[in-house]
């Protein structure tokens, strides 16, 4: 029996062990899940070291033609990683804030550029141009986008008794927005059901193929 055949039979057994959860939580299901966690941890380690860390170290710290400055710069992420490790220490935890601040600074800039150039401008332009292509549907799309944004607008006027109230117009528009959000979530839910159904039927096909020798 080849390694592939052994692997396929192992996959068959693990699939049955996972599906045994349909009968309730049991030892077979837990065994399979713990194996899954262990294998995933092993692959994450291998990919991280082979595809990210080693190329970086070979290009900086261990590069034959690198000067002292380049080697030191190559050590910066390792120092940042060690600083992050200090976050678990009650005494030295504050040193980890320096690494967090660095990650937050770069992450914020990337998120800002991504949000503006990748989401705000293209989606606003697509919503606006949709009206020119198809007036009715374009207007409905514009109404949906605008009312959804109004739904997430939580500003309200404070009443003398301490409660809050929103204007009638805002309430009506946000109800329309809620409708669009519900439709979107319903579609996403349907998509998730169809995706998992496809995967489930593929697994059932795999089990039958193993049993029948197909």
């Amino acid at each position: 029996m080849s390694a592939e055949q052994i692997g396929l039979w192992a996959g068959f057994i693990f699939t049955l062990m996972i599906f045994s959860y349909l009968l309730g939580d049991n030892i077979l299901y837990r065994l399979a899940v713990y194996v899954f966690v262990g294998l995933a941890a092993g692959y994450v380690t291998v990919v991280t070291i082979e595809s990210v860390l080693l190329p970086w170290l070979r290009g900086t710290v261990f590069a034959p033609e690198a000067n002292l400055g380049q080697r030191l710069l190559g050590l910066v992420p390792i120092i940042l990683g060690l600083l992050l490790l200090l976050k678990s220490s009650p005494r030295l935890g504050r040193l980890g804030n320096l690494a967090i601040a660095f990650l937050v600074g770069v992450g914020t800039a990337v998120a800002l550029v991504g949000a503006v150039a990748g989401t705000l401008l293209p989606l606003a332009a697509a919503t606006g141009s949709g009206v020119r292509v198809d007036v009715l549907n374009g207007f409905l799309a514009f109404l949906g986008v605008a009312s959804t944004l109004v739904y997430f607008h939580y500003l309200a006027r404070r009443k003398p008794d301490g409660g809050t109230t929103r204007g009638l117009v805002v309430r009506v528009i946000s109800a329309v927005g809620q409708g669009f959000i519900v439709i979107t979530l319903g579609a996403l839910y349907a998509g998730a059901i169809l995706t998992s159904l496809t995967i489930f039927s593929e697994r059932v096909g795999f089990i039958l193929a193993r049993i029948t020798g197909g």
Binding site: L8, G11, F12, F14, T15, I193, S196, F200
Partner: peptide, 17 residues
């Protein structure tokens, strides 16, 4: 990876149904 890891992942995703 292709036989065991992906099998377990797919089975778990199928359970989500």
């Amino acid at each position: 990876f292709e036989t065991v890891q992906i099998s377990i992942e797919s089975a778990l995703a199928g359970l989500v149904l």
